[in-house]
Amino acid sequence: MSTLKPIVVWGHDMGPNPLKVHIVLEELDIPFDYKIISFSDMKKEPFLSINPNGRVPAIEDPNTGVTIWESGPILEYIIDQYDKENKLSYDTLAEKYQIKQWIAFQISGQGPYYGQAVWFSRVHHEKLPSAIERYTKEMERVRSVLELHLSRSPSGWLVGDKMTVADLAWVMWEQIGTLILLFQDIHLEGKYPHYDAWYKKLLERPTVRKVLLSRTKSLRESGLAPDAPDPF
């Protein structure tokens, strides 16, 4: 990878989706330039020429000339283009599409519901108990899906016999989900033992620890979650 030009990753220092990309690039030892952009600058040029949706992450790859936004396709692009040794992936048909399946569930079933739980419990100007309850229950429902699948997985990973990008795609939002539950004094430890064991293995990854420590520091300093506990 030493001959590669750094991939430009547009993100910010608190949101989970750019940091998913950060973790995977670190795992594959791919050089990248992480550019932090303010929320206001996401909504105007020149960033709208990169992502017309005005969100992060987005990447620009000078090695291929490819620009992509949305975290799921970004992760799949990085794997297809750069994980030639299948460190975080498989080249067998079933496993390849099972990875896509779990990434799809992460971006459709985990991220949006967890994000709404954050909004209504920590950001929204008015406390709406019914909204907080709905999205908190959805967070637990998603965990129950993970628990069921992991209870049937001999390896304890989502796909095959090793950790893949499918697992790493989940870790940042799971960290946020854990914080939101703690802020509401909801403790699920022991209720989903296979999930707990899986998540613990993810937290032990050096790349995950590095990114989570950085994000916790940003949460505390920003004032968004000054009471954010240590992530481990």
Rank of each mutant, 00 (worst) to 15 (best):
E76A: 13
V211E: 11
S222A: 00
L213A: 10
L25G: 07
S151Q: 10
W170F: 11
W198P: 07
L188E: 15
M172I: 01
R215A: 10
Y135S: 05
P229T: 00
F105H: 13
P154T: 01
D185P: 07
E95N: 08
M163G: 05
P206W: 08
P112L: 07
G109H: 10
Q101I: 05
Q81M: 08
R55P: 00
Q184H: 12
Q175I: 14
R134Y: 08
P16G: 14
S121C: 08
H187V: 14
E140R: 14
M14I: 03
D91H: 12
G190T: 00
G111N: 09
E60R: 12
K200Y: 12
F32Y: 14
L19R: 14
K201T: 02
I107D: 13
F120D: 06
T92R: 04
S144Q: 05
S71L: 01
P52Q: 03
D161P: 05
E221V: 02
S2L: 11
L128G: 01
R141H: 14
W102Q: 09
R209L: 07
I78K: 13
S49G: 13
S121W: 06
S121R: 09
P62A: 09
F47E: 10
P16I: 01
P226W: 00
E60I: 09
L224Q: 04
T216C: 03
K35L: 02
F183C: 03
I68V: 07
Q175H: 15
P46H: 09
P229D: 02
T67K: 07
G65K: 00
G160H: 01
Q106Y: 00
I103R: 06
S38I: 03
D227W: 04
D161I: 03
F232R: 08
K100C: 10
G177T: 03
F120W: 15
E85S: 07
E70H: 05
